[in-house]
């Protein structure tokens, strides 16, 4: 496959449809998908309920991760308490048995919650690649303010750019724009990003003048 990756274009090209209203967006997405166009991703300023159905996304697997981490927490807590109180240094306290299960409930519960919460948040951050030194690939800065952005990858669709733009307009997009990412922008370096920021300053913002 080496010869393919050498000649493959590493820049990416997207057509963006901009929406202001969440219901227009949902109807628009249905229209785009009916036309057989595959949507790369939709960017929203807030969670739009039911959008995952229009996009055909499944449920999140995070609850399962939360359960697994919680079970791990319970196991660790019970092992720790029975080991310390029953094995390593048994002590008679208030005439209770060394391994006094009712007394171990609060700490076991707390550790279940602790492991579950941190495990789930950790899974979320790792799976979504969220980290403080990440350079985000931003399609349109207004997508964290008041616009919903539908991004369509040109390389993943057989239709031409003009055809996709027409479909987006039919689907009620307020604006249809093109966004290109170079190879470097697709694999950004944090240090280069910082360097550029200090060299050129802030070059784009969603704040109106």
């Amino acid at each position: 496959m080496a010869h393919i990756s050498n000649t493959m274009e590493v820049d990416t090209h997207y057509i963006l449809g901009v929406y202001s209203d969440e219901d227009d967006l949902k109807h628009g997405i249905d229209h785009i998908r009916e036309k057989g166009i595959s949507i790369y991703e939709v960017f929203n300023p807030y969670p739009v309920h039911g959008l995952e159905k229009n996009l055909g996304y499944g449920h999140s697997w995070l609850p399962k991760a939360a359960f697994m981490f919680g079970a791990l927490g319970t196991t660790c807590a019970i092992t720790m308490q029975t080991g310390m109180m029953g094995g390593l240094w048994p002590m008679i306290i208030g005439g209770k048995p060394f391994i006094s299960i009712p007394d171990f409930v609060p700490v076991s519960f707390e550790m279940t919650v602790l492991f579950s919460a941190f495990g789930m948040v950790g899974s979320f951050l790792v799976s979504q690649d969220l980290k403080p030194y990440k350079v985000p690939r931003i399609f349109d800065r207004r997508s964290t303010d008041d616009k919903h952005i539908v991004a369509i990858d040109l390389a993943k669709n057989t239709l031409s750019e003009a055809e996709i733009k027409t479909v987006l307009q039919e689907a009620g997009a307020e604006e249809v724009n093109r966004k290109d990412f170079t190879e470097e922008e697709n694999n950004p370096s944090f240090f280069k990003y910082l360097g550029d920021l200090f060299k050129y300053g802030v070059r784009s913002t969603s704040r109106p003048k």
Binding site: F43, P47, L62, Q128, D129, S143
Partner: peptide, 20 residues
Amino acid sequence: LGWVGGAKAWVHYEALSLIL
């Protein structure tokens, strides 16, 4: 943390909020 608000991320995010 480099959040861009993709719909997939929001699905997970909503699940995360609910479980938390």
